[in-house]
Structures are given as structure tokens and as C-alpha cells.
Amino acid sequence: MRSRYSVRKFLPTPLSPSDIRGVLEDAQFAPSNCNTQPWTTHVVSGAARDALSKELLKAHDEERLSYDFTFDYADFGDGAYYERAQDHGATLYQALKIPRSDRAARNAHARANLEFHDAPHAAFLFMPVFGDGVRVAADIGMYAQNFLLSLTARGFGGIPQTMLGMYADTVREFLGVPEEHKLLFGISFGAADVTALANSFHMGRAPLEQSVVLHDTPGVLDEQ
């Protein structure tokens, strides 16, 4: 868990079929509400991966966003959540040596998301919507964490990408996915390029005191 990080530059070498199957089998063991197992995962590789990337880039250039679920930095508010998001962006672009004023380089990095950061594979996580969808989305999150940890355990890497979910109609049409299946996000995966600047840093985490409230559980926050 502590060695996993979001890989933003991959080597082109594909994973073996047995490794991909192993990751998918590990992900399948995620818990879910009432054991509904509500995930449907589409994996693209090879020519399908390349063709979908082209469609995503075209949609991006034509500003054809199509969200199934909203995303807006303004929704984070003015407190810790927004500050962490701002720190994430600053840390990333400092590591990439891209100044705030270089809009072209920032746009190129954004487009790299739609090229799957050169990963040989990408998985798209679709979900039905029961009620308000929150419990289903939580199940998909646990599935995705299993997926990512299995990659790490096997010596590979991945990155969950909200941006891939911003072109849900494009992805659905390309993959032949029915409208009732909603795209939460995608995961690009493969072998990390450990020499790349984009993989030269890891994001920090907030101290426990900012996210944990203990009730009759003494001594936990005294430990270092």
C-alpha cells in the first residue's frame, strides 16, 4: 500500500495475459454492498487502445466533454480539500519543470492523460446507478484499489484518471457500452518508466489528526 503511487509515464511493453488476468481476478475480490459486485470493466490494449486514444483526443480538441458525474474544483470549497488539490497541482508541475505561465506545456500534459501516459493498457470502470449511486461508486472505488494494489504487488503501476471519465459518451460509443452504464473513471496501467520526471515524486498524505476522530480509543495519536 505504501509503495503504490500514481504512475504518469509508462514503458510501452504490454503485460502478459496471465498478469492482466491476475490483476482482474484480484480486483474481483473487492467487497461490495450486499455483494452486488456492480462493476463492469472494459480493458483496451493494442489497436483498440490506440484508436480510442485518437477519439478521446479529438473529443478534447473539439471541447466535447460528456460527464456522467460532475467535477468542478469549486466544489472543494475554500478549506483543506481545495488546498490539497492546489498543492497536488503545484507539486506535479514543479516536478515536471513546467512553469505556471507555460500554457502550451500544461495543455500537452493534460492531453497525455488521453494518451494514457503511454501505458499499453487502460481499464474503464463502468457502474449501474442504484438510488443516488453513492454506494455503488464506493464499491467501484474499492474494486479500483484492489486493481491498483495488485498491479503494485506484481511490479507494475497504474493511475486512476478522473479525466478519462470526462468523455463518457465518447468512450461508451467506441466500446459499445449501453447508456445505463455510467463511466466513473479509467485506469491506465503497465510498467512504470522509472527514469521519467513524472515518476520522480510521490504525493504526501495529511497527518491522521486531520482526518481521524477517536472515541474512547486512547494513545493512538501519541504514536509516531
Rank of each mutant, 00 (worst) to 15 (best):
130 F>S: 08
130 F>K: 13
179 E>I: 14
189 F>H: 09
147 F>H: 03
138 A>H: 12
147 F>R: 06
151 L>F: 04
171 V>S: 10
153 A>C: 03
125 L>S: 06
154 R>W: 03
179 E>T: 15
185 F>D: 06
188 S>D: 14
122 A>R: 11
145 Q>M: 12
172 R>V: 14
129 V>Q: 14
139 D>S: 04
135 R>V: 10
125 L>P: 04
186 G>F: 12
142 M>W: 02
147 F>N: 05
170 T>C: 12
143 Y>M: 07
147 F>D: 04
159 I>Q: 01
176 G>R: 12
155 G>P: 04
148 L>E: 00
174 F>H: 15
138 A>P: 01
166 M>S: 13
157 G>A: 04
122 A>G: 06
160 P>G: 13
176 G>M: 05
176 G>D: 06
164 L>I: 10
133 G>C: 05
144 A>L: 02
141 G>N: 05
135 R>W: 04
150 S>N: 02
139 D>A: 04
168 A>G: 07
171 V>Q: 04
164 L>P: 07
134 V>H: 05
181 H>F: 14
171 V>Y: 07
144 A>G: 02
133 G>D: 03
176 G>N: 07
158 G>V: 00
164 L>Y: 04
145 Q>V: 06
142 M>Q: 14
171 V>N: 09
179 E>F: 12
190 G>H: 11
160 P>K: 02
147 F>V: 02
152 T>G: 09
161 Q>R: 01
143 Y>L: 06
182 K>L: 15
130 F>C: 11
172 R>Y: 12
151 L>T: 03
146 N>E: 01
177 V>D: 08
140 I>M: 12
148 L>C: 13
138 A>S: 06
155 G>H: 13
172 R>K: 15
168 A>H: 07
182 K>D: 05
188 S>V: 10
127 M>G: 11
126 F>S: 09
128 P>W: 05
190 G>S: 12
168 A>Q: 08
127 M>I: 11
148 L>T: 01
188 S>Y: 10
188 S>L: 07
